[in-house]
C-alpha cells in the first residue's frame, strides 16, 4: 500500500517537474523575445541623467515622460507614423486587388501558358531589391514620384505581389467547383461569378494577404530611405534610423521614439496574431 502511494507521489512529483520545466522554458523564451522592447520602455522612462550609468539601473528611479516629450519635439514622429500607415495601407489594398484577380485566373481558369505566367510572377520574388533600386529611383524621379506616398506604394506592391498571388491562388484552389457552376447556371457571366460569388467568400485570404503585405511595407527600409529625402515624408523606420537626438547620449529619447513606434506593432500582433501566423505559413508552404 505504502509502496503504491510513494510511486504515485513520485509520478506526481515528476508531473509537476515536467510542467514546471515546460512553462519555465516557455517563460524564458518569451522573456528573451520581448526583453529588448521591455528595455526600450525601461530606458525611456528614466530620468535623462540616469540613462547613462554603470552599473545599469533596472527599475527607473523617479520615472518620467521627459524623454517622450523630447522625442516628440525633436522630430515629427506622428508624421512618420502617418506616412507609414498611408504607404502600408495603400500597398495592401493594391496587392489585394491585383493579387485576387490574378490568383483567381491562375487557380480556376483554364488557359494556355498558365505555368510560365505563374513562374514569371513568382520568379520576381527572387530578384534582389538592390538591383531594382537605382532604375526605379530614376523612374520615380522623372515621374515626380520621389517624396510621395505613391512612389513607395508602387514598388512595394510589385515586390509583394508574388506572395499575394500565391496566397490567393492557394485559397481559391480549395474552393469547391460547385460554387462557380451554380453561379453559371443562374446565368451569371464569368466576371459576375468572380465578383458576386468568389470574391465575397475570399475575405479570409484577403485579410491574410493584406496583413503580410502591410507588415512588409511598414518595415521596409532600403527604398524608404532612398525615395523619401524630405524629412516630412519619411516613414517611421527611416525616421527612427536617422534620428540623432540632441544630446551627446541621446539613448533616452531614442528609446522613447522606438517604443512609440512599436506600440502599433504590439497592438497589431495581439489582435491579428492568428492571421499573421496563417499568412506566414501560407507563404511557407510551397
Amino acid at each position: 500500500m505504502s509502496h503504491d502511494s510513494s510511486a504515485f507521489e513520485i509520478e506526481r512529483f515528476q508531473w509537476v517537474g515536467k510542467k514546471l520545466g515546460f512553462y519555465g522554458s516557455i517563460f524564458v523564451i518569451a522573456l528573451v523575445s520581448v526583453f529588448p522592447i521591455l528595455w526600450m520602455l525601461i530606458t525611456s522612462l528614466k530620468q535623462p541623467g540616469n540613462v547613462v550609468t554603470f552599473p545599469v539601473e533596472y527599475v527607473p528611479r523617479n520615472p518620467t515622460l521627459e524623454n517622450y516629450r523630447a522625442a516628440i519635439e525633436g522630430a515629427p514622429f506622428f508624421r512618420y507614423l502617418l506616412n507609414s500607415a498611408i504607404v502600408a495601407t495603400g500597398t495592401a489594398v493594391l496587392d489585394v486587388l491585383l493579387g485576387s484577380l490574378a490568383g483567381y485566373a491562375l487557380s480556376r481558369l483554364r488557359f494556355r501558358f498558365k505555368l510560365p505566367v505563374l513562374l514569371l510572377i513568382l520568379g520576381t520574388a527572387m530578384l534582389p531589391f538592390i538591383a531594382r533600386l537605382i532604375p526605379l529611383f530614376s523612374l520615380a524621379r522623372s515621374w515626380g514620384l520621389l517624396n510621395s506616398h505613391l512612389g513607395l506604394i508602387i514598388p512595394y506592391a510589385a515586390f509583394q505581389l508574388p506572395f499575394a498571388v500565391w496566397i490567393f491562388q492557394a485559397y481559391f484552389k480549395e474552393l469547391p467547383d460547385s460554387l462557380e457552376e451554380a453561379g453559371l447556371m443562374d446565368g451569371l457571366s464569368r466576371i459576375g461569378v468572380l465578383f458576386r460569388i468568389i470574391l465575397p467568400v475570399s475575405a479570409p485570404a484577403m485579410a491574410t494577404a493584406a496583413i503580410i503585405v502591410f507588415i512588409y511595407a511598414w518595415n521596409e527600409f532600403l527604398f524608404a530611405l532612398t525615395f523619401m529625402t524630405e524629412d516630412s515624408m519619411r516613414t517611421i523606420t527611416v525616421g527612427i534610423a536617422l534620428y540623432q537626438g540632441e544630446f551627446q547620449y541621446p539613448w533616452g529619447t531614442i528609446s522613447a521614439a522606438v517604443f512609440m513606434s512599436v506600440i502599433p506593432l504590439i497592438l497589431f500582433m495581439l489582435f491579428f496574431q492568428r492571421k499573421v501566423v496563417e499568412g506566414l505559413t501560407a507563404t511557407g508552404k510551397a
Binding site: I26, I29, A30, S33, V34, P36, I37, W39, M40, T43, I215, W218, N219, F221, I236, T237, V238, I240, A241, W251, I254, S255, V258, S261, V262, L265, I266, F268, M269, L270, Q273, V276, V277
Partner: peptide, 23 residues
C-alpha cells in the same frame, strides 16, 4: 506566448538594429 515569440520578427530590422546597438 506565441505573440511574444513572434515579436522579434515583427519589429522592423533597422529599428531592431538601433535597439541592440544600445543594448
Amino acid at each position: 506566448a506565441q505573440a511574444a515569440i513572434l515579436f522579434p520578427w515583427a519589429i522592423p530590422t533597422v529599428i531592431n538594429a538601433r535597439i541592440w546597438a544600445w543594448m
